[in-house]
């Protein structure tokens, strides 16, 4: 597909998504978060490390819109800045997870046989573990910097993608155009690239959006547990973790990052929903003509 037709298709899809309430709300929320994440270093009223010992755990005021935390730092500024690291790391890890999981899943779906059987059992084993557990083990071993978090998240969140991609590929593999390509004698990788991939990208796109929101939650959970972003840098998960002790005194400290995180997650989920409907994957209310 040439760049021009690709752009045209993307514009067409976006337009269709914006015409749906879920798409309009979802895209707005996600867009707003992205804009904030990029511009927050300039728009945040306070430095995130700036402490004010005289004003700890104060309520909302004209100066501190959402009050201050236990060290007297401005909650509003930290909320604006708190999504940067999460968005950056998951924003890179999600496409990576999607690519490796998607490609492997599609390849296994086409190839079948013993390799498929063996690898899918490994996938099952991973899926049987509570998601956060293997993550914690790896991070404890290798440390918790972004350079460890990103590949770790990409690896673990790619595993469920294998299953989805394999199922999507199975549906396509049974169709005759794959038999036709095989009968012509194309190499398996060519068949994956030319015949299979274009037919599963829609499913993978929607799956990717869903994975992104899961990954954000996972990342925040790690931060909450103290394995994600290192203090004093601001992060929503970390903010909740710090502020929950003072919840009865200063609920703002917990509520603000929770609102920020949940609006982003809701935004992504709504976008995924609208994307699925636009691409025709959600056929529950498909018109006849």
């Amino acid at each position: 597909m040439s760049t021009a037709t690709l752009t045209a298709r993307v514009v067409c899809i976006l337009r269709d998504m914006l015409a749906r309430p879920s798409g309009a709300i979802g895209l707005t929320l996600v867009g707003l978060h992205l804009v904030i994440a990029v511009t927050s270093p300039w728009i945040a009223p306070f430095d995130y490390t700036e402490m004010n010992a005289t004003m700890t755990l104060s309520g909302p005021s004209a100066e501190h819109w959402l009050g201050t935390d236990h060290l007297g730092r401005d909650v509003f500024s930290r909320m604006l800045l708190g999504g940067r690291e999460a968005l950056l790391i998951t924003g890179i890890a999600t496409p990576v997870a999607l690519l490796w999981g998607g490609f492997l899943g599609v390849f296994l779906g086409l190839r079948g046989g013993w390799l498929d059987e063996v690898l899918m059992r490994v996938v099952d084993a991973f899926l049987a573990l509570p998601g956060i557990l293997p993550l914690l083990v790896l991070i404890t071993v290798f440390g918790s910097g972004g350079e460890v978090l990103m590949p770790t998240l990409a690896f673990f969140f790619g595993i469920p993608v294998i299953r989805v991609a394999r199922a999507a590929a199975h549906e396509v593999v049974a169709r005759d155009f794959i038999s036709a390509a095989r009968a012509r004698g194309h190499r398996p990788l060519d068949i994956v690239r030319r015949e299979l991939m274009p037919n599963v990208t829609d499913t993978l796109l929607v799956e990717g959006a869903m994975r992104w929101s899961w990954m954000l939650l996972g990342f925040s959970a790690l931060s909450f547990l103290g394995f994600g972003v290192a203090p004093p840098r601001p992060d929503w998960g970390l903010m909740v973790s710090d502020a929950r002790v003072y919840m009865s005194l200063a609920p703002w400290g917990v509520i603000a990052p929770v609102i920020a995180l949940s609006t982003l997650i809701i935004g992504i989920n709504l976008t995924a929903d609208a994307l699925a409907k636009t691409l025709g994957l959600d056929q529950s209310r498909k018109a006849v003509v």
């Binding site: 005759d176 155009f177 038999s179 030319r194 015949e195 274009p198 037919n199």
Partner: peptide
């Protein structure tokens, strides 16, 4: 419908 790839 099945023998032509709908995406090509």
């Amino acid at each position: 419908d099945a023998s032509l790839n709908p995406r090509q």
